[in-house]
């Protein structure tokens, strides 16, 4: 397989232009050129770690503060899902549970797995499988924001003095930060490492996809 690095060239990650190595910025689109991001995995670990740290208070503290007739109820992420099940809205409960629990936890595991594999000098995994994992994480990660937006809408609309008010809890901030940090973790991952570090290079032979 002919890679840009093998030819002494760099591919611009923004526009696909092929430039000789050593040039700082792409003449076509102005993006910084970098044959490989050598600190990619360190950045991934750093963002993932802060994402994980923010995810803990996001689950322990209340997401929503509902005040109805002088009585305030605090609701965590999982508490909100339980309430939806209680009301019989199983589909919505499923969406919220998936967006706020399954996606974030799945993301931590998948990004961590990819980073561990890339920390070794060689891996024997199928590169296509690893790329699919990375793409799924990048595509689906932003959808975790659903719960933050739900809190924003509820607290804007439900402000009826003593009858009922809804206010955002501190967990909303923590959860939003956790989503942002893990999105940055996935974006920091240099996918070219997947092919560089294959043990058996014949897997990368050209073929129809």
């Amino acid at each position: 397989m002919m890679t840009a690095r093998g030819r002494g060239q760099v591919v611009c990650r923004s526009c696909g232009e092929v430039e000789p190595m050593g040039r700082a910025r792409c003449p076509r689109c102005g993006e910084y050129l970098d044959s490989r991001d050598e600190t990619s995995i360190e950045k991934v670990w750093a963002w993932l770690l802060v994402g994980l740290i923010a995810y803990i208070p996001a689950n322990l503290y209340p997401m929503l503060l509902t005040t109805q007739v002088f009585r305030t109820e605090e609701q965590t992420i999982v508490g909100g899902v339980v309430e939806l099940i209680h009301y019989g809205s199983y589909a919505v409960a499923g969406i919220v549970f998936f967006a706020s629990v399954v996606i974030p936890v799945g993301k931590f595991i998948v990004i961590g797995y990819l980073a561990v594999l890339m920390s070794r000098p060689r891996h024997t995994s199928d590169p296509h499988r690893l790329l699919v994992l990375l793409e799924v994480v990048e595509f689906i990660g932003r959808w975790s924001m659903i719960d933050v937006f739900v809190v924003a809408i509820l607290s804007a609309l439900v402000q009826f003095d003593v009858l009922a008010t809804i206010n955002p809890g501190i967990a909303a901030v923590c959860f939003a930060l956790s989503v942002i940090f893990t999105m940055l973790a996935a974006q920091s991952f240099d996918s070219r490492l997947i092919w560089d570090r294959m043990k058996d290079d014949t897997q990368g032979a050209p073929g129809h996809v």
Binding site: M1, M2, T3, A4, V11, C12, R13, G16, I194
Partner: peptide, 10 residues
């Protein structure tokens, strides 16, 4: 010439 930003193929 067009390069692949994902895997560096040219």
């Amino acid at each position: 010439l067009i390069g692949c930003p994902i895997c560096d193929a040219v």
